[in-house]
Amino acid sequence: MAGRTDQLESTVDGVLETIMEKFHGHDSTSFDYDTSSSSIKSNMYRAFGREKPPFADGKSASDVFMWRDKKVSACVLGVATAIWVLFELLEYHLLTFACHVIIFSLSIFFLWSNTSTLMNKSPPQIPELALSEDIVLRIASALTIEINGVIEISRDIASGRDLKKFLAAIVFLWVLSIVGSCCSFLTLFYICFVFLHTVPVLFEKYEDQVHSFAETAESEIKKQYAFFDAKVLSKIPRRPLKEKKVA
């Protein structure tokens, strides 16, 4: 009886070991497959060194720009278009517009309150508006970080350490000056705003094609820069570096 029990236990142990071996083997296979697929994805070219889709952090601004809530995005774009038409096409001045809006609002509330009093009704409750100190500090902190970043980049370019950054900055500012001479600041701001509502969506939709084109463009730019460096930059005479005196 004891022999049969030992034999049964050994058989059960053998079956369990076989099942565990198959399970671990399947696990390692799937792990290898995941690793290989992830390595392939990591080796793919990503434009601008990006590893995740643009505006993929789930913030409210990204939801507007990516048209995840079409009603809100359409309203924001409509308001921006109305402001551009009002101030640019109709040539309405900002101070005049602000004064007219305040006059109209105060008149409506004043008439509403007096009419309600005459009709023995409760006057409208005007909400108390106050600017939160936390919001002001956040805006100031964000602006400080951005301005300091621009100053740091400008100092790095002006120091002459990176010729590529210097040429890129010159070309960008030159193009920006040409665009600024062709249109007003409000029109330029509106164009950038429209781009923010269209380019990220198209980029997310045609992401693979953009990465392929960016890879080709980057290799071509590097080739042209190497040619320019060999033909022009390398022939510019430079002052030889002074040897340090050994004490």
Rank of each mutant, 00 (worst) to 15 (best):
T5P: 00
T11L: 14
G14W: 10
T18W: 12
I19T: 06
E21V: 13
G25S: 10
T29N: 14
Y33I: 13
S42D: 13
M44C: 06
A47V: 11
A56N: 13
S60C: 04
M66S: 11
R68K: 15
K71D: 12
S73R: 00
V76F: 04
V79Q: 04
T81M: 12
A82G: 02
V85P: 00
H93D: 15
H93W: 06
A98F: 11
V101E: 06
F104G: 07
S105N: 13
L111Y: 12
T117F: 09
L131K: 10
E133N: 13
R138H: 08
I139C: 06
A140M: 09
I145Y: 07
N148Y: 04
G149S: 06
V150Q: 10
S154M: 07
R155H: 03
D156N: 06
D156P: 00
A169R: 05
I170C: 05
V171Q: 06
L173A: 08
W174F: 12
C183W: 12
C183L: 12
F185E: 04
L188D: 05
Y190E: 08
L196V: 02
T198E: 02
V201P: 01
L202P: 04
F203Q: 09
E207F: 08
H211E: 10
I221R: 10
A226G: 03
F227T: 12
F227A: 11
L233P: 02
K235R: 14
P237L: 05
R239T: 15
L241R: 14
A247N: 13
